[in-house]
Write a protein that binds this DNA or RNA. Structure first.
Lengths: 237, 237
DNA sequence: TTGCATAACTTGTATATACATGTTATACTT
DNA sequence: AAGTATAACATGTATATACAAGTTATGCAA
């Protein structure tokens, strides 16, 4: 059975995105929505809570749900989105070149990052992202060898995520990210068009599967003028 | 009546933080928790879903809830946290100096940021944050005058948030944030100890009340070496 | 011993009901 | 006309039940 509350959620998102309910307008009440979608109130509430979590609406007790303006700071880059999805959304002229792809026996440094045992193997992929002909992002990915046994070279030029979720059948669960600013390494200077920039923005991500197993560590190194991160945050209860 | 699911949520968080259930261990099953807390399963599930949202646990169907290691990238700075709360958590030697505090008739620029009508008034606060004797953060806050009628100078040296949520009785609902890197302005150069850094990290935040009214715009300008942002993200369904 | 079906767990989805609590418009009272 | 009580409606919390679906241990059969 298709999950009703997810179907409703996506339908509501579509309605907001196509301005059926414009910014600052009110959604139909929960009771009305139960009639529209022929379902129970709790199911509607699950869908609405997803909308609230993802910054589409604000629920106000006694009044209803009001549509939030997401374009104010433009689209959220937050969440777990791959470079390819992002580029497609923005319709940028982008290219990905694989600088390096190797199956390594994890060094101490990699072992501590991926938390694998001694003598464990891992994939190391190094890629350069080019936007409008300028090399602006250097991605260094490490995958746990036990979880990702094969990583064909041609896949790396495309979307590794599509391969991992589609071909291998793994499902990503969550990610922990850290954003800091560093001085460029020699590697950064070689592979990026830094043009005098004396800093790079580094996003370090630990990516976990649905069963909470760590399977990837990534360092995404950006030229500072092409970096941008948008976030939506709710007050912690 | 105290909200049961929130009480349970905070109790579970405390148990995780005090290592009653260490990283990678399993929480008691939902059924066991209903007995422990003498409540229904749905109430337990509400609390557990909050834990999952905030990166404390990963729920795995058929198995149970596993505790996530949050210290891997250390605590999340994400969410809506004030400088004061942050400094207290980290036990840093910090100081806040008010550079400027004025009640202004909104200029075009401020009006578009705060989305207020023509001739509306707003508070403009400019503060420098000093950590270990070094001026590393420049905060520029704008508050909608209609919502925050008074803003005593002594409050600005302390926590404006405590004042707004405590004294005025407003409740913050959510925030939209954007992180980018800019070249330092003349103002940055005057008020920050940039020591040759040629970039500043800028966090622009639009902060909304519980009823979705925009009431604050903030630019937090950081010296890049003292900037750090940690995020927890779940896969979008 | 090995393999497999099954039972006994786990969490996920959908529904229903009751009442609490906040908001707003209505109608009544002063 | 102004203020106030009230009714109608909104969302929030708590509980119960039923079944779906994934995981694991048990025990039987080959």
């Amino acid at each position: 059975m298709q999950k009703k509350y997810l179907t409703i959620y996506h339908d509501l998102v579509k309605n907001i995105q196509t301005n059926v309910w414009p910014t600052a307008s009110m959604l139909p009440s929960e009771k009305e929505l139960t009639i529209t979608y022929d379902t129970s109130r709790e199911t509607i509430r699950k869908a609405l809570n997803l909308l609230a979590q993802n910054g589409y609406i604000q629920k106000i007790r006694g009044k209803g749900s009001i549509v939030i303006d997401r374009k104010k700071l433009s689209f959220p880059v937050s969440g777990i989105t791959s470079f390819k999805e992002l580029a497609n959304n923005l319709q940028l002229d982008t290219k990905t070149s694989v600088v390096n792809l190797e199956y390594i026996t994890a060094t101490d440094q990699v072992r501590s990052l991926l938390e694998v045992e001694e003598q464990e193997d891992a994939w190391k992929v190094c890629r350069v992202r080019t936007i409008d002909g300028v090399r602006v992002i250097l991605d260094k990915d490490y995958f746990v060898g036990e979880i990702v046994p094969k990583l064909p070279a041609n896949i790396c030029e495309e979307s590794i995520y599509e391969y991992i979720e589609g071909e291998i059948g793994l499902t990503i669960g969550f990610a922990q990210k850290e954003i800091i600013v560093e001085e460029p390494t020699e590697e950064d200077k070689v592979f990026l068009d830094l043009e005098g920039f004396s800093n790079v923005v580094v996003i370090k991500s630990l990516i976990y599967l649905e069963d909470a197993r760590l399977f990837q560590y990534t360092e995404s190194r950006h030229r500072p003028d092409r970096f941008r991160f948008v976030d939506f945050a709710r007050r912690i209860k």
